[in-house]
């Protein structure tokens, strides 16, 4: 963003916030881009309001759709509704402040959250054990947070945009991922092999609840004492709660700590037990491991979509191009997880 664009952006935003919060005066002291967020633009705001519902000095994070995005990602307005539902349900999330669907203000819908301190970068969280406090306690805390998310159940008028729940989440996931892979000219038969395995091995449909669908190390923040926020709600949808556990435990999100199967930070069994205790629901290990294969497939498909944002010319970016290449390792992992002797053709 150029300096002149930033001035326009800042003035429009300040005017909008003034009206939205019913303040008598508003000043936006700082607007600064935040790193991270491959699918959205994230900005740090420092504002001061006189009067109104946000009176005082405030530090926020503004999330706005990037120039190009991927179909799997929900709008900032929808994401805001999801975070609000989670906040009301007791999940540790940044306080949702306000959202704007009007693309005329900043060029795209946006949402504003209270800034939360902490570190979210997955590799750092895994490697730097001075972060997150006691790791066993963090593992259990994350399991409890996920259990709270899974308490959000149908019907929910505020989440009507999520649509009807899938009758069969696993089959729906396979269809969705085939759609992603088919939406670019990139052809990956190794991933298709994994998807066919997922179709043949599909578990019977079970309970359907709100699932985060990106609950993993790298998408929560910690400080030196423990968890500070669960982030990145843009993929949330009705689904199989075991899919969230599979995503969290998948090898691709352990950042090199394969021995710590719960997100590279803790013991799988400890995570399961804490989840069961908080949710009252038994963890189905076989189903979780099925979803771990699907997790690799899903991350691979998303990585390819990200890479295609670069390769198609929609958003030339070295970071996006390299994200696309992550699919190579995931494809290799999928083929290792689905050898011929792991096919049960009778199912």
């Amino acid at each position: 963003m150029s300096a002149s664009q930033e001035i326009v952006w800042r003035e429009r935003l300040t005017r909008w916030l003034l009206a939205e919060f019913g303040a008598t005066s508003a000043e936006t002291r700082e607007v600064a881009p935040l790193s991270g967020g491959a699918i959205q633009e994230n900005w740090r705001l420092h504002c001061v309001f006189a009067g109104g519902r946000e009176a005082g000095e405030r530090r926020y994070v503004l999330r706005k759709d990037a120039r190009s995005t991927i179909a799997a990602s929900r709008s900032r307005f929808q994401e805001f509704a999801l975070v609000r539902a989670a906040h009301e349900g007791g999940v540790t999330v940044p306080r949702p402040v306000t959202a704007c669907a009007d693309a005329d203000i900043l060029g795209a819908p946006f949402a504003i959250y209270e800034q939360v301190d902490g570190i979210g970068l997955g590799p750092k969280v895994v490697k730097d054990t001075s972060l997150g406090g006691d790791r066993a306690a963090l593992t259990e805390r994350l399991a409890r947070e996920l259990a709270l998310i899974h308490k959000i159940a149908l019907p929910r008028d505020d989440l009507a945009f999520l649509g009807a729940p899938p009758a069969d989440p696993a089959r729906a996931a396979v269809a969705e991922l085939r759609g992603y892979l088919g939406s670019t000219p990139l052809r990956r038969p190794g991933l298709e092999w994994g998807l066919r395995w997922s179709e043949v091995q599909v578990p019977a449909p079970g309970e359907i609840l709100l699932t985060h669908r990106d609950f993993r190390t790298g998408n929560y923040m910690v400080d030196e004492r423990g968890l500070t926020a669960v982030l990145d709600w843009e993929f949330a949808a009705w689904g199989d709660p075991m899919a969230d556990i599979g995503w969290f435990c998948a090898r691709c999100w352990r950042f090199g700590r394969d021995d710590l199967e719960a997100g590279g930070i803790g013991n799988r069994d400890r995570f399961y037990r804490a989840y069961e205790s908080a949710s009252g629901r038994q963890v189905d290990d076989a189903r979780v491991r099925y979803w771990e294969v699907v997790a690799h497939l899903r991350w691979a498909a998303i990585a390819l979509l990200q890479g295609w944002r670069h390769a198609s010319g929609a958003e030339p970016s070295l970071a996006l191009a390299l994200t696309g290449r992550i699919a190579d390792e995931l494809e290799y992992d999928v083929l290792r997880m689905t050898p011929p002797d792991k096919w049960n053709r009778a199912s």
Partner: peptide, 19 residues
Amino acid sequence: MSGDALTGASLLAAAEAAQ
């Protein structure tokens, strides 16, 4: 097309733009 849109020239062009 296979994975080639994310390799070779496309990748190097992105690196050169970043440089």
